[in-house]
């Protein structure tokens, strides 16, 4: 039993050391908020996801693509869970180029739920050309591609400030206290009441930041809810089996120990 405790503590120590070392190099303290999807039973807030989608389409989507997400995903379980009719209507509101048809020509048609999100630019070069050389990153896995994850995105959206004296900014460059190097080529995308929420929620910058970040988290991890649910079951199962095997082991080894 003593050895067991030693073993467990070493395991715990190593995993702790590993986690903390890979999480280092945070400079500015990020803003925190209560994310509903964190924790053992974390789930997305359906309302936040739907509002977040609205922020994404009305604000972000004019520059940022989301090329790995399909319209059908919006109606899937564990996501914003729009109804089937809503998903069809959302998809149909976008036009995309398809083809070639029988005459060998490309044509435009309304998007279907099975299509991927229509991209704002044809390609990376076009996106760069339209944005002063900076490519607005694809948002499909953006929260997983940034060190601070959701907290970083949430903070960044609220981190626009006037540059402190001594820092000069070029044309088309803005100051953001959470951005790596503090200089960002995206103008502050959000302002109070920029959009009108369908459900009547007050559209403050903070609210929109939280909603759209929740939406981005879902876009990056669409199976998060089933992962959490399955994880809880798996671990409970493993604990039960461990206990059973532990007592079986005691029983089996008692033959040896009693005999000695």
């Amino acid at each position: 039993m003593k050895n067991l405790i030693k073993l467990l503590s070493v395991l715990a120590f190593i995993s702790l050391a590993v986690t903390t070392s890979s999480n280092s190099a945070e400079t500015t303290k990020l803003l925190k908020t209560d994310w509903s999807f964190k924790g053992l039973f974390g789930k997305f807030d359906r309302g936040a996801l739907q509002r977040g989608y609205q922020v994404y389409t009305e604000v972000c989507a004019s520059c940022h693509s989301m090329k790995y997400v399909s319209y059908r995903n919006l109606g899937e379980k564990g996501g914003p869970e729009f109804s089937e009719a809503e998903v069809k209507a959302i998809a149909a509101s976008f036009e995309l180029t398809d083809g070639p048809n029988a005459d060998g020509e490309m044509f435009t048609r309304p998007a279907k739920p099975s299509d991927k999100f229509v991209m704002p630019y044809e390609n990376v070069k076009a996106a760069q050309a339209a944005n002063g050389g900076a490519y607005p990153p694809d948002m499909s896995v953006l929260v997983k591609a940034r060190g601070g994850g959701v907290d970083y995105i949430y903070s960044l959206l609220q981190g626009y400030e006037d540059a402190p004296s001594g820092i000069t900014l070029d044309e088309g460059v803005y100051y953001n206290k959470y951005m790596y190097g503090n200089k960002i080529k995206m103008a502050a995308p959000l302002s109070d009441d920029l959009i009108e929420y369908g459900d009547g929620t007050n559209a403050t910058v903070e609210q929109m930041s939280k909603d759209v970040t929740t939406f981005l988290m879902w876009a990056a991890e669409p199976h998060l809810e089933s992962r959490h649910q399955m994880g809880f079951k798996a671990i409970i199962y493993l604990i039960i089996l461990t206990v059973l095997v532990y007592f079986s082991m005691k029983k089996i080894w008692s033959r040896v120990e009693s005999e000695v």
Partner: peptide, 28 residues
């Protein structure tokens, strides 16, 4: 104890096998 351990263990093996089989079905 032994029967229970075997039974619970077998359930786990079965549960782990399913995703490995299902991944070959048509995807979403």
């Amino acid at each position: 104890l032994f029967t229970a351990s075997y039974a619970v263990g077998a359930v786990g093996v079965g549960a782990v096998t399913w995703p490995l089989i299902d991944q070959m079905n048509p995807d979403a």
